[in-house]
Amino acid sequence: MGFGQFLAAPEIKLKIVTYRDVFQNTAQETSRFGEDYEKLSAVIKLDPKDMVKLSIKEGETVVVKNAFGKVVVTAQSSGHEEAHQGIAYMVNGPWSNALVPDETGGTGVPKFKDFEATVQGSKGEKVTGIRDIF
């Protein structure tokens, strides 16, 4: 155990955009409760510089939360060539939907592809299971 565990992990606020992934969608067709679906859904894709700010490495888990919900997901580098600091990507699914605000301005359409959340290293917490999201 190192000294680091007593320090608060750095936290940053990010805009989140959701997207579709064919592999995750395929896993959903087979089983929403399967390991593959969790592995491919409970993920946040970050800009490498944001990962440095968070002091986390590829594959570590992070806590993503806002006033609407909180989930622990795996952090991955987005792999996009263009820098996108301040913007993170989450695949559309129960984990991202746990964070989508209920605010609609009365339009009936939530902001699935444009909402804010804070991200923080989880110090080894396990990914939130699908049955625990609720």
């Binding site: 129960p94 746990a98 209920d102 609720f134």
Partner: peptide, 8 residues
Amino acid sequence: LSSLPLSV
């Protein structure tokens, strides 16, 4: 419960 925001 998967496809809508959980807050809704």
